[in-house]
């Protein structure tokens, strides 16, 4: 980087329309700080987002960004990174965008292992459509579309990521600014696909999964004797659905980003002014 960017450089002049107290403020601040702390600048960063409250993040941050259709932010990020591996690619989404409509892409993005960071603002509710249950909602969670509870098990994103061969699986809490920022920094520095499931409470529609709930129940792995590079330890923690953890649950230090495995070295944005040299050889192949 030519000059060290400050995290406020990543802030746009648009004021967020998130509800006062929304977890997404903290999630976004951590992302901006982590980007600046890892030496990135707005001109070499690309943010992809989908639909939902989380999807608005590209508007409130300053960088190259695409706010796309619902559930497809990961494929967009994949295309950006493969076409220009010099860019820092960060994908942001919510639990609906990532684990419901985009669940198929989530699995494949995890196993494809393109070097990008996926921050999921998990509030266990659909906020923008005013309070329906989400794939991470508890089974007994009552909403306008689940009057007697959802009657279905919630998705366990970290377990899904592990089953799909994830190389970096972490969880953070938007209100624990310091830890959240640290975790995203490490996700950015990881070579491969990094999942950071960030609890980002909805103060308007979710009166169960509140700040207090997460503060009281989160167990910070920094205070435990946890070795994220130990697959068995990681598996135990990830499959422990009775507790929720903050920190890096699993990291494969041997991970190599898909773009490197494909042999992509240069940005793909430069091409010749006419047909490439030796183009007639392509025709002669058909002789």
């Amino acid at each position: 980087m030519s000059s060290q960017a400050h995290f406020t450089d990543f802030k746009s002049d648009k004021r967020p329309t998130w509800c006062p107290g929304c977890g997404d403020f903290g999630t976004m601040n951590g992302m901006m700080k982590a980007l600046a702390n890892t030496g990135n600048s707005p001109d070499d960063t690309f943010i992809c987002a989908g639909i939902g409250c989380s999807g608005k993040i590209g508007t409130y941050m300053h960088s190259y960004a695409l706010h796309g259709v619902h559930g497809r932010a990961l494929p967009v990020g994949t295309g950006v990174k493969l076409a220009n591996p010099d860019l820092e690619v960060m994908v942001a989404g919510g639990d609906g965008d990532g684990y419901s409509i985009g669940a198929g892409h989530f699995i494949h993005a995890v196993r494809r292992n393109v070097d990008m960071t996926y921050v999921v603002m998990d509030n266990r509710i659909y906020g923008l459509t005013k309070g329906q249950f989400s794939p991470t909602s508890r089974e007994d969670f009552e909403t306008s579309t689940s009057p007697g509870g959802t009657k279905q098990s919630p998705v366990h994103p970290l377990a899904l990521a592990m089953a799909a061969g994830g190389s970096f699986i972490a969880q953070s809490f938007s209100s624990d600014a310091q830890r959240h920022t640290e975790i995203i920094e490490q996700a950015i520095e990881h070579d491969g696909f990094s999942l950071v499931n960030t609890y980002s409470p909805c103060v308007t529609f979710n009166d169960v999964d509140t700040y207090d709930f997460f503060r009281d129940s989160l167990v910070d792995l920094a205070e435990e004797d946890h070795d994220p590079t130990d697959y068995d330890q990681a598996r135990q923690k990830i499959m422990d659905f009775d507790n929720i953890y903050q920190g890096i649950l699993y990291q494969d230090n041997d991970s190599v980003g898909y773009e490197k495995r494909l042999g992509i070295k240069e940005p793909m944005n430069e091409i010749p002014d006419g047909a490439p040299e030796g183009a007639m050889d392509l025709v002669r192949e058909f002789y």
Binding site: F46, C48, Y64, L66, G68, V69, R72, P75, V76, G77, T78, G79, V80, K81, L82, A83, N84, L87, P267, M268, N269
Partner: peptide, 9 residues
Amino acid sequence: NMALGAARA
């Protein structure tokens, strides 16, 4: 969407 991402890049 991948093709779109690459084009944006």
